[in-house]
């Protein structure tokens, strides 16, 4: 653990998480509250601009970055359940405003208080306090922007090690790219798919029933490949596992009562 934990956490729920994994985002809210944090969610938030930025459309990305900075500037601490969107804000926002000193320093300040969820939890919470339950054999996929971009590797593993019932089996190369790359997968679908299939082979080799990750883009891509191949393996977002309300066997409502008391 490092530094004093914040009292209020402001959530940044990226667009893919918002649309595809809303209940996982809900699990994060539940978890943070259970751990004693006040949780805020600025309702005007949209996309951080990463899809445009990654394709070289820096002007549209700047426009969204400015908006984002305005919305989140007042936050004490920002938590985001996506490695790549966190990296966008932390690393690329300052770079986008290299020529605008004032916005640059605001972007830089924002970058210092944004955390990817597993970073936040390991920095400010003792992992054993989370007390999550999840039954099954799982493997962890390290997203590129999370592992190489933000240097996250041990954090999710430290958290998962405390989850009761979970058996974690490592892949041959958990840090290998899943081939998504945002619009890359639309521009070069065959190449993207070929890279994805390599990842699937590694996942299959672990005998896991679950693939856990911290990036909605990768999880969507991996689930798509699994579906295409008709494999019974399912993806889970890390915060969904830690949220502890689902054990993969459908006991979603368990814990809801506790939350209200």
């Amino acid at each position: 653990m490092s530094g004093n934990p914040p009292t209020t956490v402001t959530l940044f729920i990226p667009c893919l998480m918002d649309g595809l994994f809303p209940s996982a985002a809900g699990d994060l809210v539940y978890l943070l509250r259970r751990l004693g944090f006040r949780v805020e969610y600025p309702p005007d938030q949209t996309c951080c601009g990463q899809p445009a930025f990654n394709q070289g459309y820096f002007e549209p990305a700047r426009k969204l970055a400015r908006r984002y900075i305005d919305i989140f500037a007042g936050a004490e601490c920002i938590v985001c359940p996506s490695g790549s969107c966190t990296a966008m804000v932390k690393k690329h926002y300052p770079a986008l405003f290299a020529q605008e000193p004032e916005t640059f320093s605001r972007a830089k300040a924002l970058g210092e208080k944004i955390f990817e969820a597993s970073q936040f939890l390991t920095a400010f919470v003792a992992p054993e306090r989370i007390k999550a339950r999840f039954t099954g054999r799982a493997t962890y996929h390290d997203s590129c922007h999370s592992s190489r971009g933000l240097g996250i590797f041990d954090e999710p593993r430290r958290l998962l090690a405390e989850v009761r019932g979970l058996e974690l089996v490592e892949m041959e190369d958990s840090r290998a790219c899943c081939g998504f790359g945002g619009l890359f997968s639309k521009r070069f679908p065959e190449v993207s798919q070929a890279i994805g299939l390599e990842k699937i082979k590694q996942i299959q080799a672990t005998g896991a029933e679950w693939v856990i990750g911290n990036d909605p883009g990768c999880l969507m891509n991996i689930q798509g490949h699994l579906n295409r191949l008709g494999l019974p393996i399912r993806v889970k977002h890390l915060v969904e596992v830690l949220g502890g309300r689902s054990d993969g066997r459908g006991k979603r409502e368990e814990g809801r009562e506790k939350e209200k008391t």
């Binding site: 595809l20 809303p22 985002a25 891509n221 579906n227 295409r228």
Partner: peptide, 20 residues
């Protein structure tokens, strides 16, 4: 979207409003 990927009825924006 990739095959078989479902978008839940309530996105998080609505979920937040209704539940959280």
């Amino acid at each position: 979207l990739p095959p078989g990927i479902e978008l839940p009825d309530k996105n998080f924006h609505r979920l937040w409003q209704d539940e959280y």
